[in-house]
Amino acid sequence: MEIKPQAVVIPKDADHLEQGKYGPVFPRTPACHGFTVIARVKPGRAEAVRDYGHALAKALEQDPYLLAPLKLHYLRWVLFDDDTRFMYQGIFDTDFDKYTEDAIALFAKAGVSTVFENLEGFPEDWRTNPEAFIRFVREHQCPSFIEYGEYPYVTADEIKKALRVKGALSEMLDQLQ
Rank of each mutant, 00 (worst) to 15 (best):
M1D: 12
Q6M: 15
Q6S: 13
V8F: 08
I10P: 02
P11G: 09
P11H: 01
K12E: 01
K12A: 02
L17S: 01
L17E: 03
E18D: 13
E18V: 10
G20I: 06
K21C: 02
G23I: 00
G23K: 01
P27L: 11
P27K: 12
R28E: 14
R28H: 15
P30C: 12
A31N: 15
G34I: 05
G34D: 11
R40G: 15
K42D: 10
R45G: 05
R45A: 03
E47G: 02
V49T: 06
V49P: 02
R50G: 06
D51M: 06
D51V: 09
Y52C: 05
Y52Q: 03
H54K: 13
L56A: 11
L56T: 05
A57K: 07
A57L: 09
A59N: 12
L60K: 15
Q62W: 07
D63A: 12
D63G: 11
P64Y: 02
L67H: 07
A68V: 11
P69K: 08
L70R: 01
K71A: 13
K71W: 14
L72R: 07
H73Q: 15
Y74N: 14
Y74F: 10
L75M: 11
R76A: 12
L79Q: 03
F80I: 14
F80M: 15
D82W: 08
T84Y: 03
F86L: 03
M87H: 02
Q89E: 01
Q89D: 13
Q89A: 10
I91W: 01
I91A: 07
F92N: 08
F92D: 01
F92E: 07
F92A: 02
F92L: 00
T94P: 09
F96R: 04
F96L: 05
D97E: 14
D97G: 03
T100C: 13
T100E: 11
T100Y: 12
E101S: 10
I104K: 11
F107S: 13
K109N: 10
K109S: 12
G111L: 05
G111W: 08
V112E: 15
S113K: 14
T114L: 12
V115C: 04
E120C: 04
E120K: 11
G121H: 13
P123N: 09
P123G: 04
P123V: 04
E124F: 10
E124A: 15
D125R: 04
D125W: 03
W126S: 03
W126C: 05
W126N: 05
R127G: 13
N129K: 10
N129G: 12
E131H: 08
F133D: 09
R135V: 08
R135Y: 10
F136R: 03
R138G: 01
R138P: 00
R138M: 00
E139V: 03
H140G: 01
Q141R: 03
Q141M: 06
C142N: 09
P143R: 01
S144R: 10
F145W: 13
F145M: 07
F145H: 13
F145N: 11
I146T: 02
I146C: 05
Y148R: 07
Y148F: 15
G149M: 02
G149K: 07
Y151Q: 08
Y153C: 00
A156L: 08
D157N: 11
E158W: 11
E158T: 12
K161N: 11
L163I: 14
V165C: 00
K166P: 05
G167T: 00
A168G: 09
S170V: 09
S170W: 05
S170P: 00
L173P: 04
L173I: 13
D174T: 12
Q175K: 14
L176I: 12
L176Q: 15
Q177W: 11
